[in-house]
Structure formats: C-alpha cells, structure tokens
Amino acid sequence: MNAAQPAQAFAIPLDSLELGKRAHIQSIDWAALEESAARRLRQFGFDEGVTIEALHLGPFGRDPLAVRVGRMTVAIRRAHARAVHVVPIAK
C-alpha cells in the first residue's frame, strides 16, 4: 500500500469510481505497473492532483474503462486502473 494513503482518507481505486463521477488522482502505484504501461499513463497525463472522470465501461465484463483525464479521453484496462488511487469530488 502507498504510504500517502492513510493520511488522506476516502481514496478508492480508479476502477471503483462511479460512472459520471469526477475525482482527483491522489497517488499512482507506479511500481505495480509494467514500465511501458507506466510510461503511457504518464504520457496520457496521469499524475497526482489531476482531475479524472469515469465515463464508460466496456460492454463485456465491465472492462476496459474510458476515463477523461485533463482534456483527453483514454481507454485503459481495469487491471491498470486499479493502480490509480483517486479521491472522488463531492458534488
């Protein structure tokens, strides 16, 4: 588990973020990702503090996820989304 997590509570893995909800990325468990996946996420703009919104789920097995990160919409698999910890923004 990430050390930063207990301090700010309510962080959930990105793959449990409700559709249509926005959240801030609190931490990303880079070590849990293979190098190429980590690099791609960084290039997509995944970073601590960035606003993210869950948009769509794949029709089969609710995988992959489509999320809006910054101004971009990207598709990632659930397995990778689990490494991203987010704090939902209260409406």
């Binding site: 996420l41 919409t73 990207v74 698999r77």
Partner: peptide, 11 residues
C-alpha cells in the same frame, strides 16, 4: 508472456 496493455486515446 504477459499480455500487453490496452491503452488508447479516444479522440
């Protein structure tokens, strides 16, 4: 081997 990632921008 481990399956590759599926990471794509939806333009």
């Amino acid at each position: 081997g481990r399956g590759g990632a599926f990471m794509m921008e939806l333009p």
